[in-house]
Amino acid sequence: MAGFDKWTERLSRGVARRTSRRSTLAWLGAAITGAATIPVLPVARAASGSPHGGGGAANAPLVSTNPQDPGDQTSCDYWRYCAIDGFLCSCCGGSASTCPPGTEMSPITWIGTCTNPADNRAYVISYNDCCGTSSCGQCLCNRNEGDRPQVRPQSNNDYNWCLGTQSSVYNCSTAIIVGVALDQPK
């Protein structure tokens, strides 16, 4: 027990000899400043994000110059993504209507309608998945407007829609306008 007392005494005296109150203050100041930079790291940015999924802020906004096509195409809130469930191709090296290089667009898709805030008309949107390389992992969005249960497979977005492609591995999703719906869509 006496040995333990001696060891503790030596340790505390050593600390007192080697450090000053000023250096302690300097160290504390550095730690406080360092802690303030943690939210800048990508970990914290991935944790925050829009209500439909995280990651909006991690990507530079991609805004069309067409006034008929308002909104940021890398954000889950973009109007064409109203029924999306997956990673946005516009955050993955592609765009809202094209696949990233090295992937293949699925010819079989699920189709729904979204209201364009510019003219309040419903447009028919085809959610073609891009397939062939592993999940992109950027901008996960899950909005599901008009999504039907799995007993209606043609209107359900929980299935893997990488069908009719060489590979069934899912990478990301596009949202392509294929038509203008009539005034009484169903």
Partner: peptide, 18 residues
């Protein structure tokens, strides 16, 4: 026919192709 075309796009085209 316009209604039919949109209904085809919405209900059939996804799997049966444009």
């Amino acid at each position: 026919p316009q209604q039919a075309r949109i209904d085809y796009i919405l209900k059939c085209q996804g799997c049966h192709r444009p």
